[in-house]
Design a binder for these strands. Structure first.
Lengths: 349, 349
DNA sequence: TGTTGGGATGAAAGCGCTTTCATCCAGCGT
DNA sequence: ACGCTGGATGAAAGCGCTTTCATCCCAACA
């Protein structure tokens, strides 16, 4: 009882006694058909188990109903969350999400852009505005709607967050608590305008307070928990150790807390820690992490909506800047005295 | 100086003075052409800035160079890691990754399968073997290579891990440490054969030791940190509280540690905790989490390779079972005495 | 020197759908 | 009663590429 091949549009048309055009319309713009015809077509389609062929449809219409997203890495709460939000928003609108990652490698990102463009996507989401010249050229000439996230530029639509301000908020909080000697653990700066921005913001706040954040107090690390720990370790091993550390991402801040605790340094009494992101884990740390909340899911959702708006031609090059805010919890405290009573004892249990 | 449209295959052919067929071959099977022709074509292609159109190619060849992956949720270290591994393996072979998630909803999964199949994927990766009948039928009739992960069945290729054994290892470790009263926090069991398996395994180990794991000591929770905490809270609030808890995933176990600590219960002295997964965070907890290591990245990588092998026809319905092992760290300790000296004091700082 | 085999290329038929454009017809206004 | 309008449908031309199949040519062989 099995038809020899997959049912095609013409098969349905034949079965329903109408033209292929009519079947096509029945699928895509049912309001153009009379109710009876529509019913007849649907009935035939169901009987034959017809499923439209996406590739043929894409070729003929020029639309793939697919949006691409290229993120630095999938293995990150942050990007996973954004992708999740994008995915559900897109699905609701009938789009699919094609993902690629570049592992912080500009050339790989360019390559990914090239493939996704060739493959045919109706829109493209990218992280940050800092990329290879060639990549930007590709995007420009492709004519495909693009949305940048976290950081943007004037050329494309963007859903941003003020990364400098995030760094500033974190630093200012520490300054307000009386800290004068502050360190920071950040991701590798080249090709990462989010981290660069946060560092710049922290520096700005410090400078305004008559303080500074010398390179010696900034540790660049890979974006992992281990990175946070080793960054913290480096800072704590300094001759004059900082009384507070800012994590460029929450993961770093969490790593800092863990490293400090495993050395017997009490947080926040012996070391204040502030992060940026406000990931799920942060609220559950002991002590709970004071951090700057970045509306990650909302970035994803807004990016998806922006892309769709561009695809459907409703709007172009829209810029949305999402608000951020300091979330005060208990990992940062006021300096108790002019001097600290801790000596860098490395008492790992 | 801009050509009015995108260069097409025929444009290159015309420019190079060859037939379209030759250009097509130059792109896909260069070994069929003479060196001179090849060069001429490449030169023209470069000059015109020719980029093959993926959709047209897909339609004509029946191959999309795209593999779909449908996971329960993107917002999970585990699945993000698997996707990451798949993505990099696939990219290396020239494939793209199309992702979808279903938020633990069987109907949504079926729908996702339907769309990805319609959209045209050369292969499909799914999590677990437990799904709607209709979904299985779709897969069967589509003829698209499928690979199941974590849990498998006889019908499709699979890259699995022995979830029952994982639960067993966790429970046995606790039993060996002298625990007799063990609780477990698991994910919602329906439509989740990974969690069901782990629970069943734990029960098996306990039964073998003459113990049991009554439903009252099993707390079902959403797969989040908060779920772990509230599961732990529920268990600790029991009249006869367990001396040890197994987390169906590491995130639960971590939540348990945090909940215990915030209640002033010391881990492992006051409560032993064991997880399953071995995520990055686990090793950095204080105390570091004892857990059953699941080779997550390897699952992704192997799944990708299995899919590709099936697509290229090298092999079919291959089953790979990846080894797991207990990683003993410091969150579980021997019961110090026949009775415990802790009273459920809820001293949140 | 006549075959012959095979490597290189071209011709042309699609792949399955979308989308103008044209056609047809009913009902409407005058 | 007549032209007109607009809604419903059909005809047909692609969308840009792949892939058989046929053709051509030349080296190699006898």
């Amino acid at each position: 009882m099995m038809q020899r091949r997959k049912a095609r549009l013409v098969d349905v048309a034949k079965d329903a006694g109408v033209s292929p055009a009519t079947v096509s319309r029945a699928m895509a713009r049912p309001e153009l058909l009379s109710v009876e015809t529509l019913q007849r077509v649907h009935q035939s389609a169901r009987r034959l188990g017809y499923r439209p062929d996406g590739m043929a449809r894409a070729l003929a219409s020029g639309r793939t109903m697919t949006v691409g997203a290229i993120v630095p890495t999938l293995d990150s709460t942050i990007f996973a969350l954004v992708l999740q939000a994008m995915q559900s928003t897109l699905t609701r609108e009938g789009y699919q999400l094609l993902v690629a990652s570049h592992e912080m490698n500009p050339a790989a990102e360019t390559e990914a852009i090239r493939t996704l463009l060739a493959r045919g996507v109706d829109g493209l989401m990218l992280v940050g505005a800092d990329r290879a010249k060639e990549a930007a050229a590709l995007l420009r000439t492709s004519g495909v709607p693009v949305v940048l996230t976290w950081c943007g530029n004037a050329e494309f639509a963007a859903v941003t967050v003020d990364n400098e301000r995030a760094g500033e908020l974190a630093a200012q909080h520490l300054i307000d608590l009386g800290h004068r000697h502050i360190g920071m653990v950040v991701g590798h700066l080249p090709f990462n305008d989010r981290q660069s921005g946060r560092l710049a913001g922290a520096r700005r706040a410090l400078r305004r307070a008559g303080l500074e954040l010398p390179d010696g107090l900034v540790s660049q690390q890979g974006l992992t928990l281990a990175g946070g720990r080793s960054g913290c370790a480096a800072l704590l091993d300094l001759a004059t150790r900082p009384t507070a550390i800012i994590g460029g991402i929450d993961l770093f801040a969490i790593g800092c807390i863990q490293e400090a605790q495993s050395r017997g340094v009490i947080v926040p009494e012996g070391l204040s820690v502030v992060g940026v992101d406000n990931i799920d884990m942060s609220a559950h740390m002991i002590p709970p992490l004071t951090t700057v909340h970045i509306p990650t899911s909302q970035i994803g959702q807004t990016a998806a909506m922006t892309i769709i708006a561009q695809i459907t031609g409703e709007v172009t090059r829209q810029h949305v800047d999402l608000p951020i805010e300091l979330v005060v919890r208990r990992s940062a405290a006021a300096l108790t005295g002019p001097l600290q009573k801790h000596h860098g004892s490395s008492t790992r249990p």
